[in-house]
Design a protein around this nucleic acid. Structure first.
Lengths: 173, 173
DNA sequence: AATGAAAACAGAGATCC
DNA sequence: GGATCTCTGTTTTCATT
């Protein structure tokens, strides 16, 4: 484990992509796939599953972390179980004159506790915000206070999310 | 740890919400927050951080898993590092007559390796698909073969994602 | 339900191939 | 770069409160 993280902040490094074109061999790819599914798989089980010695496996996983291939290990939490049963996707378009502040504005929004993901997109909208909140009143407050009331924001469009299927572990690594 | 997962499938249980209105006390909430940030935090460190004995901590975490509050532990992977440097959000609207098959169709799509998340939404679109792929050719192949060529699909709209800020650990648990 | 002690186990390093 | 061995520390169980 490296450094701890500020409780409310963004992950420290591992920016957009970078450390690019890292060549992963077959063992690396299998490790990534296994840890994507179960981040707590013991090192020796991991080693056995990919067919290397535990010490090798440990070194491989550490290298994957250091290369930025593995960005971190996280528990997946049921939002509803922690009082965030309502999810929405909010498309935001900034005022033409406010494009220069787009990234700073979006990053501040992304640091709000309601926000689960923020996607900068190409096209009519500037970014999408995936939020999980307690109820419609909280959602409305977020949209109004954090977005539509801001002069930088031109338009927002909120879509309620009925269900979210995350795909942790299904990638074709 | 409960059962293993089929490599390509969805997580087993923990559907939309369920096990609902689970009362979490202060210790539970702190455990959830810590594990959301670092799923591999050692049990004794976890115990010390929340102020209970390691054995108690272990039982708490196990209970959180069994209650479905914690759905799993996953490594966060840099998509670019595993050859999926291009991300997009695809909005899909189904044909009016195909709404009955919406869920089945969407679930099959969600099991595709390109798909990272699928959101069923209210409004003009039926669902949004967050994909991560190698290049534009792969993206185009996905959109055409899996979506627009299908008779159930009315329209798709693809937005490239420039950057994705995930918020693991920022929730207000 | 939480604890403390004891047993089982995994993790990290040094050494060698 | 990878394996074997060993020591240290953590995870886990269980009797107890």
């Amino acid at each position: 484990m490296t450094g701890p993280r500020s409780a409310q902040g963004r992950p420290p490094a591992a920016s957009p992509s970078h450390v690019r074109a890292v060549a992963l061999d077959d063992v690396d790819r299998r490790l990534v796939r296994l840890l994507e599914e179960d981040a707590r798989m013991p090192n020796n089980a991991l080693a056995a599953a990919v067919g290397v010695a535990p010490s090798t496996c440990l070194a491989r996983v550490r290298a994957l972390r250091e290369r930025g291939v593995i960005r971190g290990f996280h528990a997946e939490i049921d939002p509803a179980a922690v009082g965030r049963g309502l999810q929405a996707m909010i498309a935001v378009r900034m005022q033409a004159g406010a494009r220069a502040q787009l990234r700073d504005f979006a990053r501040r929004v992304a640091d709000r506790p309601e926000v689960m993901d923020l996607y900068f997109v190409a096209g009519a909208d500037d970014f999408l915000i995936h939020v999980a909140v307690k109820d419609t009143a909280t959602l409305r407050a977020f949209v109004v206070d954090q977005l539509s009331a801001r002069p930088e924001v031109a338009v927002t469009q909120t879509s309620l999310i009925f269900e979210h299927l995350p795909a942790a572990g299904s990638g074709f690594v």
